[in-house]
């Protein structure tokens, strides 16, 4: 299998403000969000980062997408390092998040063209791909409707299409089904599987066990910024359900504290 993504000792700390220190009852000035993460993802697979809220999943994905500089370590995506060639990385990845809200004022068609142009996609290719994608997600009928007037589900579908205008080989998806309605969530998971069958590499973060079980080929469990367990779904579970495995692990790590 071809290794497409390789993260090596990624580490990120954040300064805590006075207020945050108070909230968290700590006198530490810094908090380690991601603590030396190392993992790989291969072509044609879905890699899931599983962890509770605040474990450092989003931070990790942002580092992979060059939105945040790692304090230590490096990640190589499709042969480009996030440290030395962030522009190269950006050309290869699509970064999706369920938090994306598109500007109400524009039409899906306009937004698609806008981001397509920013990615420097050839006009003709872009037009074809747009027709294809809009049809795939059923947006074609609403292509010229302002985003403000679209249904929530349609908006969510559009915010999945938009970051993929350049047909990236690596797709980074933060909390894919968070806040989606059931129908859209299904469309998203189906589409992720479709992308996998096209040979794309998908890295997603989630705290939903069923999603991991249904989608992921390999999974890494992150607790407190550290990779506790990483491997194929079967390896990680070791006979248990992923949910049981996770809670056992969580108890082991946090046991003394609670």
């Amino acid at each position: 299998m071809e290794e497409i993504v390789r993260a090596e000792g990624l580490r990120k700390t954040f300064q805590l403000s006075r207020k945050q220190q108070k909230i968290e009852h700590t006198t530490l000035k810094k908090r380690v969000a991601v603590d030396g993460l190392t993992f790989s993802a291969y072509a044609g697979e879905i890699f899931g980062l599983l962890g509770p809220n605040g474990a450092g999943k989003t931070t990790t994905l942002r580092m992979l997408s060059t939105l945040i500089h790692p304090d230590e370590g490096d990640a190589v995506l499709g042969g480009c390092s996030v440290i030395s060639d962030p522009a190269g990385v950006r050309a290869k990845i699509g970064f999706l998040t369920s938090e994306l809200k598109l500007e109400d004022f524009f039409t899906p068609s306009y937004l698609y063209d806008f981001f397509s142009r920013l990615h420097g996609v050839d006009e003709q290719v872009s037009r074809q791909r747009k027709a294809q994608m809009f049809e795939r997600f059923g947006i074609d009928r609403y292509a010229e409707t302002k985003v403000a007037n679209l249904s929530t589900g349609m908006k969510q579908k559009l915010s999945i299409v938009i970051p993929l205008v350049h047909d990236p080989d690596i797709i980074i998806f933060d909390e894919p089904t968070n806040g989606l309605d059931v129908l859209t969530a299904r469309v998203v998971t189906d589409y992720l599987q479709e992308l996998r069958s096209m040979g794309k590499t998908i890295i997603l973060s989630t705290h939903i066990f069923s999603l991991v079980e249904r989608l992921c080929d390999r999974v890494g469990i992150i607790i407190d910024g550290q990779m506790k367990l990483c491997g194929t779904l079967a390896e990680v579970c070791g006979g248990d359900t992923i949910e049981d495995r996770f809670f056992n692990l969580y108890k082991e790590c946090k046991g003394g504290e609670e």
Binding site: S65, L67, L100, K101, G120, I162
Partner: peptide
């Protein structure tokens, strides 16, 4: 606020 800044920043621009 909308989160589109991330999408913009991930483009090769």
């Amino acid at each position: 606020e909308r989160g589109t800044i991330a999408t913009l920043l991930v483009t090769p621009m």
